[in-house]
Amino acid sequence: MQSWIPVLVYLAIASSVGVVMLGAARVLRVRARHVPPTRAATYECGEEPAGKAWIRFHPRYYLVALVFVLFDVETVFLAPWALATRALGGYAVVEMVVFVAVLLLGWVYAWRKGALRWQ
């Protein structure tokens, strides 16, 4: 675990960069004396915004997102395999050929069912 100390510390420093810059800007900023009431309005090409943006709408790729979750899990299986292939040799490759074949079968099924389509 010793080797993770620098990573944790580094992450803490990297996270503070943005906060520090926001703080510096708070000190340096020049505030407007007179603020027109429309300034804080949402931008919509200069018009008054027509309603809010927080509405329900069709994202068009719901099924792709589901397939994505499946394949994301599959990459979790592939990572340890990738690490061990060199050590395990031909046996591991044959196993992975079977695994990937099954996976690609599912992938073809998803494609044929139209799951990869922008709906």
Binding site: L11, A14, S15, V17, G18, V19, M21, L22, A24, A25, L28, R29, V30, R31, A32, R39, A40, A41, T42, Y43, P49, K52
Partner: peptide
């Protein structure tokens, strides 16, 4: 210097907390 001197405007209708959170999080 220019971008630090300018005023950060948070839109009236925005979710202020998430709006402030997103930029430093992206950079981190």
């Amino acid at each position: 210097v220019k971008s630090m001197q300018k005023e950060s405007i948070v839109p009236r209708d925005a979710d202020a907390l998430l709006f402030w959170l997103a930029p430093p999080l992206t950079l981190a």
